[in-house]
Amino acid sequence: MRDESISESLLVWVRTESKDLHQAMKVDLHNHEQLKCRLRQAGSSMAEIARTLGIKQSSVTVVSQGYRRSHRVQSAIACQLGTTPQELFPDRYAAEEDSAANKT
């Protein structure tokens, strides 16, 4: 019985943490689809970015979707689109800019 109680508690904690993580990471699948479309229009793709960086395509995808953060991947996507990571992912950089402004 004790093992079942621990398992239930762990499951509730994992669900809560996962929900909090999604809120903190700002998953944005709409933006991801727009980025894929813009990359196609520019003659590129998530797969091409992954090959250039020497990483898996899924790694580029999870960054684009917002599940993970990688300045390197965000910069590569932005470079392909002729813009900046801050322009493509403003919510990811707003906190950093606010933090830097408070330090000065």
Rank of each mutant, 00 (worst) to 15 (best):
residue 87 E to H: 14
residue 82 G to V: 03
residue 102 N to I: 09
residue 60 V to N: 03
residue 32 H to K: 11
residue 93 Y to A: 01
residue 103 K to Q: 13
residue 85 P to W: 03
residue 60 V to D: 00
residue 3 D to Y: 09
residue 34 Q to P: 00
residue 82 G to M: 05
residue 59 S to R: 10
residue 41 Q to T: 03
residue 92 R to G: 02
residue 71 H to F: 14
residue 40 R to I: 01
residue 43 G to D: 02
residue 71 H to E: 13
residue 57 Q to L: 00
residue 69 R to W: 10
residue 2 R to K: 12
residue 8 E to K: 12
residue 1 M to N: 12
residue 41 Q to S: 08
residue 45 S to I: 02
residue 90 P to M: 05
residue 57 Q to T: 13
residue 22 H to E: 14
residue 78 A to F: 08
residue 87 E to P: 00
residue 18 S to R: 11
residue 16 T to C: 03
residue 83 T to K: 03
residue 80 Q to V: 00
residue 81 L to H: 03
residue 85 P to H: 04
residue 28 D to E: 11
residue 12 V to C: 00
residue 57 Q to S: 09
residue 89 F to P: 05
residue 56 K to L: 14
residue 78 A to C: 06
residue 1 M to A: 14
residue 17 E to R: 13
residue 56 K to Y: 09
residue 39 L to N: 01
residue 11 L to P: 00
residue 70 S to K: 03
residue 51 R to H: 11
residue 13 W to Q: 12
residue 11 L to N: 14
residue 41 Q to K: 15
residue 38 R to T: 03
residue 34 Q to T: 07
residue 28 D to Q: 08
residue 86 Q to C: 05
residue 100 A to P: 01
residue 55 I to D: 01
residue 63 V to W: 05
residue 24 A to R: 15
residue 25 M to W: 02
residue 26 K to E: 12
residue 48 E to N: 12
residue 63 V to D: 04
residue 85 P to V: 01
residue 85 P to I: 01
residue 44 S to W: 00
residue 1 M to F: 08
residue 22 H to W: 06
residue 5 S to A: 15
residue 1 M to R: 12
residue 68 R to T: 08
residue 94 A to K: 15
residue 74 Q to S: 12
residue 65 Q to G: 15
residue 20 D to W: 04
residue 99 S to K: 13
residue 103 K to P: 01
residue 73 V to D: 04
residue 28 D to C: 06
residue 74 Q to M: 15
residue 64 S to C: 12
residue 47 A to M: 09
residue 4 E to A: 13
residue 27 V to P: 06
residue 95 A to W: 07
residue 76 A to T: 05
residue 77 I to R: 02
residue 72 R to Q: 13
residue 14 V to T: 11
residue 18 S to Q: 11
residue 100 A to S: 09
residue 53 L to H: 06
residue 79 C to F: 11
residue 29 L to A: 09
residue 99 S to R: 14
residue 57 Q to G: 10
residue 78 A to M: 07
residue 65 Q to T: 07
residue 59 S to F: 08
residue 86 Q to T: 10
residue 33 E to V: 06
residue 7 S to I: 10
residue 15 R to E: 14
residue 24 A to S: 12
residue 54 G to P: 05
residue 90 P to V: 02
residue 15 R to K: 15
residue 42 A to W: 04
residue 74 Q to R: 14
residue 80 Q to K: 14
residue 34 Q to N: 15
residue 28 D to M: 02
residue 81 L to R: 01
residue 54 G to D: 07
residue 44 S to T: 06
residue 37 C to I: 07
residue 4 E to F: 10
residue 82 G to S: 03
residue 64 S to T: 05
residue 50 A to Y: 09
residue 6 I to W: 02
residue 54 G to E: 07
residue 77 I to G: 06
residue 53 L to N: 04
residue 69 R to L: 07
residue 72 R to S: 06
residue 5 S to R: 15
residue 67 Y to G: 05
residue 84 T to E: 10
residue 47 A to N: 11
residue 34 Q to H: 08
residue 91 D to P: 02
residue 42 A to D: 04
residue 90 P to L: 02
residue 77 I to T: 05
residue 37 C to V: 07
residue 25 M to P: 05
residue 62 V to L: 06
residue 75 S to A: 14
residue 53 L to V: 04
residue 59 S to E: 12
residue 28 D to L: 05
residue 74 Q to D: 07
residue 56 K to A: 14
residue 64 S to K: 00
residue 48 E to C: 06
